[in-house]
């Protein structure tokens, strides 16, 4: 890691390649001492470079993290000081049916990950050898720039009861499929998955395309001359080559979306109907900020953090398993 830095600073006299006159007289001990103090000075400079970032993370991430765990064992509405109540918040959540709905919602939305990773992967592999691949990628990237609440508004117009999607379905003679996409339980989660797929698709395609460029086209041609089907090419060439990117994209989605549905939900349904599209992070907002129940909201925050921790552990376990047996 620190390769090449261990011998720094260079001996003061090495500028012209020969030991300087002053240094000739010093003992080895003194020389070591001089180097140590120089290293200390260097370490101080290093600290100054990283200190602002470390301090900001400590103040606005680490302290709030500790605080949220503390608050989760109290009841507090902002007046006076938090009153310790032990596990009462967690016990309340255990018995709260709406909270169970929220947990189920999060579990269902998690399945969206498959779509959010696979769709861009497949499109990238299909498109990247087209002549206009760059143009296609540019167009597909546009929605990813939109703020999530704008995407939410776009889809609340698209999926409205008599919105364009249902009209198109009726025109195609698929009127039976037309539904109230945003007000029917479970269907509303499908709408959320689809919306996020639309909004993240372009980034995924971008990531996968970056790695696809590295595959020599002779591989694919050889496979095709040997009569490989498209599905075989995908499975045997694209999948192994793109696996690291897939894992990376999976991780990015886990951190940025699966634990942070808030802006999407806020823009599309505001958690409704009832709690049918409320997620853990949205519940934190509803309970902790809108209702001002800081203790209960903090308990939900802690569960959100545990949910993330489980996801990351599963991800890491999968990686280790693959490395050991794959």
């Amino acid at each position: 890691m620190m390769r090449g830095r261990a011998d720094y600073p260079p001996a003061p006299a090495s500028k012209d390649g020969s030991p300087g006159p002053r240094l000739l007289g010093t003992t080895a001990k003194a020389r070591v001492k001089g180097r140590r103090s120089a290293q200390r000075r260097l370490a101080l400079q290093g600290i100054l470079f990283v200190a602002p970032m470390v301090a900001l993370v400590a103040g606005f991430v680490a302290v709030p993290l500790v605080r949220v765990v503390q608050l989760s064992f109290t009841t507090w509405t902002g007046l006076g000081s938090p009153r310790p109540v032990g596990l009462a918040n967690y016990r309340y959540l255990y018995g709260w049916s709406s909270f169970r709905t929220v947990l189920v919602n999060n579990a269902i939305l998690l399945s969206g990950l498959v779509l959010w990773v696979l769709l861009p992967f497949l499109l990238a592999t299909v498109v990247y050898r087209l002549r206009r691949a760059a143009l296609v990628r540019t167009i597909i990237f546009i929605p990813t720039i939109l703020p999530p609440i704008v995407v939410g508004e776009v889809f609340s117009i698209m999926l409205a009861h008599s919105g364009p999607l249902n009209i198109v379905l009726r025109h195609l003679g698929l009127g039976v499929v037309a539904r109230d996409w945003l007000t029917t339980p479970y269907l509303v989660l499908l709408s959320v998955i689809w919306m996020i797929s639309w909004a993240t698709f372009g980034v995924g395609v971008q990531f996968f395309s970056a790695a696809l460029v590295a595959i020599p086209s002779s591989y694919i041609e050889a496979a095709q001359i040997d009569g490989a089907r498209w599905s075989q090419v995908v499975w045997n060439i694209y999948r192994p080559v793109l696996r690291p990117v897939m894992q990376f994209w999976f991780l990015v989605l886990t951190i940025s979306t699966v634990t942070y549905f808030f802006p999407w939900i806020f823009g599309l349904t505001q958690g409704g109907p009832g709690y049918e599209s409320t997620t853990l992070d949205y519940m934190v907002y509803l309970t902790g900020i809108t209702n001002g129940e800081y203790g209960l909201g903090s308990a939900i925050s802690v569960i959100l953090l545990l949910f993330l921790l489980v996801l990351l552990l599963i991800y890491e376990a999968g990686r280790r398993f693959r490395r050991a047996y794959g």
Partner: peptide, 21 residues
């Protein structure tokens, strides 16, 4: 590691203390 850890922390999970503090 401390700084990288912060990447993974979802903002909603610390929004209550951020607001109060």
């Amino acid at each position: 590691g401390f700084v990288i850890m912060a990447i993974a922390i979802p903002i909603p999970s610390i929004i209550i203390p951020l607001f109060n503090e």
